[in-house]
């Protein structure tokens, strides 16, 4: 075990997988000479050379599609988006090509590719650079969507994503790169995709949280413990495939649920989780599921407004108290 930042855990995952399989290469803007816009790819150019760590022009649609084509014939590209905001330019290749290739070719062409990079809210970069778009990708069969919340998860899940034979959207929270945690140094350490983790056990209410919301939910749970409410925090880690079983198991135990997420509420992942809880565990619910989402407005620049736009510990606490009928 070593204590690593999220950034270094991701770096280690890529380094190890590039050593393990020479078909793995990294391409994106500023990934090589500049060492990564967020320094996630630091040192990789020096270690693997410019054949495998490749600076691309600012051409998201182009290099996303290049990656998909290379994956169709057996390479295993890691395509880094400087941020997922810019992946929007590449959605045609991600959704129309990567997600559907295996299906429309009748099973002939799989696309083992990882699209990764930072996403979610950042600090005061306003509307175009601060948004969570996982629900877009999670909507489509054919894609997997992963959102780690700890350095260990980041490493284990990224290694699995690289080894996976399907296109994987891997969203790293931009504010979390510096977060530290214990990480296994075993090169065979992986975490399977599609498996949730209970980050804290509890009996009175379940908070389903992902990515940046996980540390906030844990803090809220600590506070609530003092107030006599025992919270279970479930982190799905993979949005698609969603480990609904672990969530349902928790709901059966606590009978009350809050779903916390950074993204806008409308058509969001939280809406999907709420619907599935209703479908699978309606009789176990003692209160309607409550969502704590980013507000239904673009992210503003002003610090005070930005703080209002993104869920915080207090809003999660309030929501839990609401489903527990305490207020």
């Amino acid at each position: 075990m070593a204590v690593l930042t999220m950034r270094d855990a991701l770096n280690q995952a890529m380094r190890e997988e590039m050593h393990r399989d020479e078909n793995v290469f990294l391409m994106g803007e500023e990934v090589a000479a500049y060492q990564g816009a967020y320094k996630v790819s630091r040192g990789l150019l020096q270690e693997f050379g410019d054949k495998r760590v490749i600076d691309s022009p600012i051409t998201e649609l182009g290099f996303a599609g290049l990656g998909v084509g290379a994956a169709m014939v057996g390479l295993r590209p890691i395509i880094e988006f400087m941020t997922f905001n810019f992946s929007i330019l590449a959605t045609d290749q991600i959704i129309n090509s990567a997600a559907k290739m295996l299906y429309m070719s009748g099973g002939q062409f799989k696309v083992p590719i990882v699209f990764r990079g930072p996403g979610g809210s950042a600090y005061q970069v306003s509307s175009q650079h601060s948004q969570a778009i996982e629900s877009w990708y999670a909507h489509f069969p054919g894609l997997k969507v992963v959102m780690p919340s700890t350095p260990a998860d980041a490493k284990g899940l990224l290694k699995s994503a690289i080894r996976d034979d399907n296109p994987v959207i891997f969203i790293e929270q931009e504010r979390m790169y510096g977060n530290k945690g214990e990480v296994s140094e075993d090169e065979e350490f992986t975490i399977p995709l599609g498996v949730a983790e209970v980050k804290r056990e509890g009996t009175d209410a379940t908070i389903v949280a992902r990515s940046l919301m996980v540390p906030l939910a844990l803090k809220a749970a600590e506070e609530l413990e003092k107030q006599g409410v025992s919270c279970e925090v479930v982190d799905p880690r993979t949005i698609r495939p969603l480990d609904i079983d672990t969530i349902i198991e928790s709901v059966r135990k606590t009978n009350r649920v809050v779903v916390a997420e950074e993204s806008h509420p409308f058509c969001g992942v939280g809406a999907e989780i709420s619907a599935q809880i209703m479908e699978h565990a309606f009789d176990y619910l003692d209160a309607p599921v409550r969502r704590v989402s980013g507000v239904d407005a673009p992210t503003p620049y002003a610090k005070n407004l930005e703080n209002l736009a993104i869920p915080d510990v207090q809003r999660i606490i309030a929501a839990v108290r609401e489903v527990a009928y305490l207020d």
Partner: peptide, 11 residues
């Protein structure tokens, strides 16, 4: 067109 570019990249 980008896909073909990637196939050529792989070769």
């Amino acid at each position: 067109i980008p896909l073909a570019t990637g196939v050529a990249f792989a070769s």
